[in-house]
Structure formats: C-alpha cells, structure tokens
Nucleic acid binder design. Structure first.
Lengths: 113, 113
DNA sequence: TTAATACTTAGGTCAATACCTAAGTATTGC
DNA sequence: GCAATACTTAGGTATTGACCTAAGTATTAA
C-alpha cells in the first residue's frame, strides 16, 4: 500500500536481513502466496508477515489478496536503482584509480628518461 | 580489524543507514581521515565512529592509523559482490517475465470471455 | 453449515542500533 | 614541555527490529 520512492537506502536496508533476502531470491523466480513463501522458514507466521510488510513498505514487492490467498511478486525498479547506485560508486573510484595509475606511470617514465 | 567474507547481506545491511551510505559516497571519491569524513555531520564524533566501525567490520572500508590521523578508504570487492547479487536476481526475473509475456500473448489469443 | 485454510491483529519480550556525554590516550606544533 | 589536535573508550538512554503466543477474520471445501 505504501509505495516509497525506492531510495537505494531503503532497498539496502530491506535486503540487509537474511529472511528478506531469501524471500526476494524466491520471488525472483516467480510470484508466490504468503504460505508458500513462509514454508521454508521455522519462524511463526506473524513474524514472517512482518518481513513481507517491510518488503512491501519499501516498495520491493507488491501483494494482492485474492479470496483468502495473498499473492506476492517482485517490483523490479528499486533493484535497478540500487544496482545503479552501486555502479555509480564503482565508476567514481575506478576513474580515480585509473588517474592514479596514469600518474604513477608518468612518474615512472619521468624517472626512466 | 574483522574482515568478513563480504556476504551481500552484510553489505546491504551496512549500506542501509543514511550516514554510512554518505560515508561510502564520500570515500568513493578518494581516501579521507576520520575528521574529514565526520565534518559534514551534526553527530558527535563517537557516534560517527561507530558507523565507521560497522563499515570496517563488514569489510567495506579499510583504515590505517598514521600518527594521530586515521585514513579510511573503500574496499571495492564487496560492492562488486553486492552488485552481482542484484544482477543475478534481475536476470532471473527478466527471463521469467519474458516467458510470461509470451505465454500471456498465447492465452489472450485463445481466450473468449 | 460447519470445519479447515489462509492469513491478520493485538499484544509482549529481548537484543541490537543509533545516538549521547564525559573523560580518556597518543601525536604534533609552538 | 604544554597545549591543541585527532581520535578513543566507557559508560548510558531510547528507539527500532526480530521474534513470540493467543486470539481474531474472511474464504472455501465438504
């Protein structure tokens, strides 16, 4: 119900828990009901449901109730946004390391000549 | 001190906090001392240091003390591992959505409501 | 129409997290 | 040497997070 703007921060926080990460891994393979998702876990159902609510609250999954069954599925966008953030950081530091490398090479060439 | 094997889970958890995410963004542009990193934050220094310890404990940054100054820098690998995990999930569901799309097209052709 | 199923709500505990202040230690500049 | 600098340690509080049990509600199957 509460779809957040999907800040990478929220995505990361949601994925920082082993249970929720496992739920996402399961849902990556396709939608599932609450009880299907809960089955592999020892945890009591209400505890498990909290994790689903976190995922939904952060906008990582969408759920729809049909009859007495609630079906859950992944929302791809926030994952893409998180990936982009990680890649942006990577770009920053590899650019920097490249410059450092170039600089060191210059130094070395200067010595050699 | 404690360099973890950098499970994506730990990386995500560390990045789930706004302060730590900002620290990483700063460090992506190059190494910095503790006080340089802390300057933009209102937070008391000991509180800030805790965040640095989380990042170091999760293996996302490396710190070396030289004299009275501690210099901090990014460790790229865990970020790559986290990116890879996100991309793996994406691969799973895009393959599936492609298949679903094809299937729905077929169904619609055969469906007379 | 009753019983089973599939959640859902309402509480309550316990540990971890995010902050704080106050008082250290170790280096360095004057 | 002595003061300023750059952390560091040692506490303490308050909120959030991850779990639990017990008792609902709504839907479906028999």
């Amino acid at each position: 119900m509460t779809l957040q703007p999907a800040l990478p921060e929220h995505t990361f926080q949601a994925l920082g828990d082993p249970t929720r990460r496992a739920i996402v891994e399961r849902l990556s393979q396709g939608p599932a009901s609450v009880s299907e998702l809960a089955a592999p876990f020892e945890m009591a159902l209400p505890s498990f449901l909290q994790h689903l609510k976190v995922l939904e609250g952060r906008g990582l999954i969408r759920t729809v109730k049909n009859g007495r069954v609630r079906r859950c599925e992944i929302i791809p966008e926030p994952f893409d946004a998180a990936t982009r953030w990680l890649e942006d950081q990577r770009t920053l530091w590899s650019a920097r390391l490249d410059r450092l490398d170039a600089y060191l090479t210059t130094l070395k060439d200067g010595d050699a000549s």
